[in-house]
Design a protein around this nucleic acid. Sequence first.
DNA 1: GTTAATGCAAACTTTTTGCACGGCC
DNA 2: GGCCGTGCAAAAAGTTTGCATTAAC
Lengths: 148, 148
Amino acid sequence: LKISASHSKEILSNHGLKATHQRIVILQALMETESHPNAEQIHDKIKKAFPSISLATVYKTLDSFVQNNLAEKVLTDTDHVRYDCKVHEHNHIYCTNTGEIIDYEDNELQILIKKHLQSKNIENLEIEKIKLVITGKKTDLKQSVFIK
Amino acid sequence: LKISASHSKEILSNHGLKATHQRIVILQALMETESHPNAEQIHDKIKKAFPSISLATVYKTLDSFVQNNLAEKVLTDTDHVRYDCKVHEHNHIYCTNTGEIIDYEDNELQILIKKHLQSKNIENLEIEKIKLVITGKKTDLKQSVFIK
DNA sequence: GTTAATGCAAACTTTTTGCACGGCC
DNA sequence: GGCCGTGCAAAAAGTTTGCATTAAC
């Protein structure tokens, strides 16, 4: 999802963040990268157009995005933290062939699971969100997973 | 789940791993720790009774457990790798208050989700396993989450 | 006896921190 | 102009590696 600098600026303001050049560019990069990048990948991507930007700033900025509900950390089975622009509750498919993390949106599924959990009535737990993690292999590597 | 040294030894052999003193003790520690520890926590726990054990060995051993399907890495939203004894497919509850990872087993749920995914017929994906991650807060911190 | 695992220390990778400087509101 | 964000470099945290020693089968 490509967004303009002014739109990025607007999103930052709406989330109570000062719209610095660095944050504008990092948010743009995060929103237009589908692959759930880590801090270093975002830094690499931005450096071409903005060579002075520091990796430490990317770390700090991504942290501030998470604090302000603009992004969330993605759980991986390696030890690396990756980021996902927070749009709405969605699930992830981990491809064990390629290491990709693919978004899987399925509102019906979300409702199905929540209904089930409600019926189970888990005591002493206030559920904030749920996420299904599907691990598998893309069988046709030349082609993206097609979500019906 | 407490297990004896001889039982631990047996499990290791059954998984094709040489039953060294270190591995026996690490497996015992992992099985009896409900909190999904990381390498350092396991090392700390073992050191009391086995002061010469090296942290590097704990890392190597946990890796070998994962390779041999005795354990699996747990995905956290921090950057730390934690471990879970591999028993069977199960879900996790992350408590945002305490940082705990609590197992949630619910076979009905597993079946429900799988049926749904089958009906959705996701193309080009061979599903290996699914795991639901529930994020929430334990409302009564003095008491453990009770799974009905 | 042979082969593989362990312990140590050093290296490496990823992330965080402190502080002086600069830019946004 | 005041305050917060940034860049730099150094430190910290977490994990891996190489190699000589030791233990399992």
